[in-house]
Amino acid sequence: MNFEIIRSYLPLYIEAFMLTIKIGWIGITLSLAIGVVSAFILHFRIPFLSAIVKIYVELFRNTPLLVQLFFVYFGLPKIGISISAEACGALGLGLLGGSYMAESIRSGLGAVKVSQTEGALALGMKKGQLFTSVILPQAFTLSVPAIIANVIFLLKETSIFSAISLMDLMFTAKDLIGLYYNTTECLFMLVVFYVIMLLPVSILGSVIEKKTRYKMFGDK
């Protein structure tokens, strides 16, 4: 291990780290938005739309991100839709994540007990009130652990972007290995940067999971 090399590579890695984080968070925000909308559509069984959402969710949950990215990045330009690599990465991540988020949020919505709805209705709440002040908070609490697991999963998946030549951490490491053959140092830094990025999220996840478990309403 040569620390001189590590120091000289550091700026490159930090740049890549920033790019990874940027695309990661754009993708995650996008996936949350898609997920929430799809989950509502599925939960309320809106006709026609819910069939589309179902197909979308199944299609994206059952194919690898790499294949999706290749399709969007190399396949779509052939029929006239051309997207930059960055947008493509964010879009791919958003679509993949959206399908996972939709499932988690939907199961959160479905897990709120019927007695809660009945209780709220018995108290004379309107449909809107019932939804915003009884069901949503509980559904959100129920789906937080799953959402955080998805966030970690999505941040990990960003490593695949190197395949469509985005300068992310993985690409930088591969590039430097190819140029200078300092495999040990490059891989070491790669691991360190992924730990910096994901360990806090992972720890935060366990903390929140414990907190929300105590905050559950009723039994359990």
């Binding site: 990990k156 695949i160 993985m170 891989l187 992924y194 730990v195 994901l198 360990l199």
Partner: peptide, 13 residues
């Protein structure tokens, strides 16, 4: 924890 936070691609490399 290692498996949880390391992308499989990194492990492969």
């Amino acid at each position: 924890e290692i498996v949880r936070i390391m992308p499989q691609m990194v492990l492969l490399f």
